[in-house]
């Protein structure tokens, strides 16, 4: 079958790309998308290793939970973004700097 490393490399690429999106995008929604990408990469990783766990199915179960949590996170995050926009009148993370020194 597909060797483990292939999955890991793909997962690494997705993770790096998601990281790039989180760090550099000027729109909060894009940052959210980046986070989702990273979560997806990690789920892929879990599933890839889960192939070797027939007794406990730990990898796949964890992956399922991760998916659920990612969904919850998106929902809450969008609500937060809405509120942030109401207050700051902007979704640019760079403008939300009231906690700066």
């Amino acid at each position: 079958m597909i060797p483990l490393t292939h999955f890991l490399i793909v997962s690494a690429c997705l993770f790096a790309i998601g990281l790039y999106a989180v760090l550099s995008r000027r729109n909060a929604i894009m940052v959210l998308v980046g986070i989702e990408l990273m979560i997806n990469a990690s789920i892929l990783n879990l599933v890839a290793f889960g192939r070797y766990d027939k007794t406990l199915y730990g990898g796949q179960v964890f992956a399922l939970f991760a998916i659920v949590l990612a969904a919850a996170a998106v929902a809450v995050a969008l609500a937060i973004i809405l509120n942030v926009y109401k207050f700051y009148k902007s979704v640019n993370p760079e403008d939300i700097n009231h906690l700066k020194d």
Partner: peptide, 17 residues
């Protein structure tokens, strides 16, 4: 070090990673 405290989340993220 206070320059690190920009108040911008992405910068904090950068530092963490």
């Amino acid at each position: 070090f206070r320059r690190l405290q920009t108040g911008r989340v992405q910068h904090y993220f950068t530092t963490v990673f």
